[in-house]
Nucleic acid binder design. Structure first.
Lengths: 182, 182, 182, 182
DNA sequence: AATGAATGAGCATTCATTCAT
DNA sequence: AATGAATGAATGCTCATTCAT
């Protein structure tokens, strides 16, 4: 799995073959077919492992410091950039026989809904200004796209000043969400 | 080219083969090899055509109504969603033999720099609050990611309420950029 | 197709791979995939070509000499032994994903029904003794099995005395079918 | 062995893999490789076990009721249809590296010679009309093919009326062999 | 005695590309 | 200008077998 993630992160989803992964893992190609029933299964495993890691990192962190969700997200990404990037690659490229994206809606549930929930909670507590249901979703999407974009930027520019970047994102979304600004 | 775009839009970059494109175009597969030296060349052409279309649409529009850049961008996308989506797919998947993304930095120049320039101009004119150079780039990236995310969302949900979505994005970035909010 | 037939005849259905056929045909393996959509399609073609050849050989012969159907059948087989054997191999080995024989019932229609029809006609004309419907089928099956067995024997022993063998079969089935014997 | 037989009977020789057998037997695949030196050895065992069962069933039966050999054969088959079918599949598909059928002549010795012997005996005793050596073999082959065909038909149509079918076969071969008919 | 792990060989198939026409 | 034919390379995958435990 680790090598799968690294391979995807390095050469991209489309170029990731069992052979590539095997070469990186220094094992025979068939070992992978032996452990997984499908190539699809390997790719499916990548988001699943990510969700687990995400869950076990995020939940306690968010409870500890309720006010800084963005910081928590971005810290996790910075520390797991390859895995997160592999997930993004997989999510946005894995398609069924009919050409439809297979994992997109599942990914929404795990990465979009939580953001929407945080926004909703913030509104209830009066910390965020009122969104209507539609604009809350747009806000959540925008935040997720910013986070994913952060991941991609991090992969392209490994020496990115993470703190600086994070601060930038926080300022942007604070301004957009804080109630005193409207 | 048209068929390439439609194929990418429908089945994604990774599943787009010369055969797929040829079948859609109702021509022989080799005709494509005949017109283009490479598969890479076809895909490279997609962003190029897009930039041209973008240029000839955007420039006059921006000059006509200086204050509503976001609206101009999103209108263009809504009307060229397949092409824009194909560009995003191509940009984020086309890689060289070394695994590096081939078109990403070129794409930045055409899609990121213009946004940065608009922001810089806004600051000069006092319409936007001061960004430092770093946060201006973060802002530009975030805006572009939001725009690209809009495209993707548009492809996944063809009946998306475009006006509503657009208004949501405008509000978000107005709040983040307008000087009176900090 | 010719090489497919020869390969099946020589190494059997189970050992016949595209590579084997290609080697025999002295062409690249992919040429076959290029001409046929499927491996299944090649195998499907073998009985089809056989039925055509059978039809164009049998029909005129049977009309010319109505009384000697067995002779007509066995002559055809002796002259097309490889093809007939390949058909038998294919018929009795080609199976679907569920494990069911795919071509057996289709083969019955082309090879069993005609025999049943000849028997029925013989009964009508008083040349053959009365079979009930069930025993007519058993008779037809037995004749077909004898004919197929002739093919297999012919492949195993290329120098088989065909005339002698044919005469033997004719005697057996004459005795079983002629009305004066019951 | 039992599972091998069932697997062959169900999916055919060509589709029978060690994995398939192991799955049916609920054991690890390598257990088979552990007990048998070869895949070939397993398949070779199937006819051997069959011959044993055949021997211990047929010999006493034939001695008890000398006149009804066909009935004895067909009864045995009806009661061991899966095994007999597996033998037929194995005999007609198992091939050596040179492509030659490995078990065919061995099978002839056990299944063809006995029939020839019965015919010869019948002739001696004046019960059957005179065959020359060649036609006796043809007769024996035809009977065996009829018997094998009965097995195959039994597998394809599990609700076959066995008695009816048996009676049909007996009539056919009685007419062909009884001396009073020529 | 039994088995999980591993592997080389072979399979059908897809693909971008070359070539001759 | 256009195309059918052909092909090497690579892909995901199955399989019988070996090995270490």
């Amino acid at each position: 799995m680790e090598c799968s993630i690294e391979t995807i992160a390095e050469v991209g989803y489309a170029q990731t073959s069992l052979g590539q992964i095997a070469k990186r893992a220094n094992i025979s190609k068939v070992v992978i077919s032996y452990r997984f029933t499908n190539k699809k299964e390997i790719f499916a495993q990548i988001p699943i492992e990510y969700y687990k890691a995400w869950q076990s990192f995020i939940t306690p962190q968010l409870e500890a410091q309720k006010r800084n969700a963005s910081g928590v997200f971005l810290t996790f990404i910075a520390e797991n950039r390859k895995h997160v990037f592999a997930v993004i690659e997989t999510i946005s490229n894995q398609r069924g026989a009919d050409g439809k994206l297979l994992l997109a809606s599942e990914h929404d549930e795990t990465s979009l809904l939580p953001i929407e929930n945080i926004l909703t909670l913030g509104i209830k507590e009066g910390l965020l200004h009122e969104f209507n249901r539609s604009s809350a979703r747009v806000m959540a999407l925008t935040i997720r796209n910013a986070i994913d974009g952060f991941t991609i930027e991090l992969m392209r520019q490994p020496h990115l000043d993470i703190k600086e970047f994070t601060r930038g994102l926080v300022i942007i979304f604070d301004a957009s969400t804080k109630s005193n600004c409207h």
